[in-house]
Computed example of a mutant assay.
Amino acid sequence: MISNNKFTSSDDLSLVNKTKYSDEEYLVRVKLAATYRMVAHLGWDELIYNHLTARVPGTDHMLLNAFGMRFDEVTATSLVTIDMDGKIIDAGSTDLGINKTGYVIHGAIHKARPDILATMHVHQEDTVAVACYKEGLLPISQNSFIIGDISYHNYEGISINAQEQERIVKSLGPVNKNLILRNHGIVSCGNSIEEAFFFLYQLVKTCEIQVKMLSMVGGDISKLDIPDKQIRDFSTRTAASFTKQGNGKKEWKSYYRIVEKLDDSFKN
Rank of each mutant, 00 (worst) to 15 (best):
G102K: 01
I98F: 00
M84D: 09
D60L: 10
G97L: 10
L79T: 11
K111W: 00
H61K: 04
D85C: 06
H121K: 15
G58W: 01
D95P: 12
V74P: 11
M84G: 07
T81Q: 05
R55M: 14
S93A: 15
G68S: 04
L117F: 15
I82K: 00
T119G: 15
I88T: 05
H110C: 01
G107N: 03
G102W: 03
V104R: 12
D72W: 04
A108H: 04
T101V: 13
P57N: 14
D60W: 11
A76R: 08
V74M: 11
M62C: 07
S78C: 01
A66G: 07
T101I: 12
L79E: 09
D83Q: 02
T81P: 02
T81N: 07
D95W: 11
D90A: 15
H61M: 05
L96Q: 13
K111A: 09
A76F: 15
I105R: 08
M69S: 11
V74C: 08
A91I: 14
Y103N: 02
S78R: 00
T77C: 08
I116D: 00
A108C: 13
A112H: 01
H121S: 14
L79H: 09
G68I: 01
A76I: 09
V104C: 13
L63V: 10
H121R: 15
V56S: 10
G102Q: 11
A112P: 01
A76M: 07
F71C: 06
D90H: 15
E73A: 05
M69K: 10
M62A: 11
H61P: 05
G97I: 07
L63P: 02
R113F: 08
P57T: 10
F71I: 04
G107L: 03
K87G: 02
P114Q: 09
G92T: 03
F71H: 04
A54H: 12
S78I: 01
V56T: 05
R55V: 14
M84A: 05
I98R: 00
A54E: 12
T75Y: 11
E73T: 05
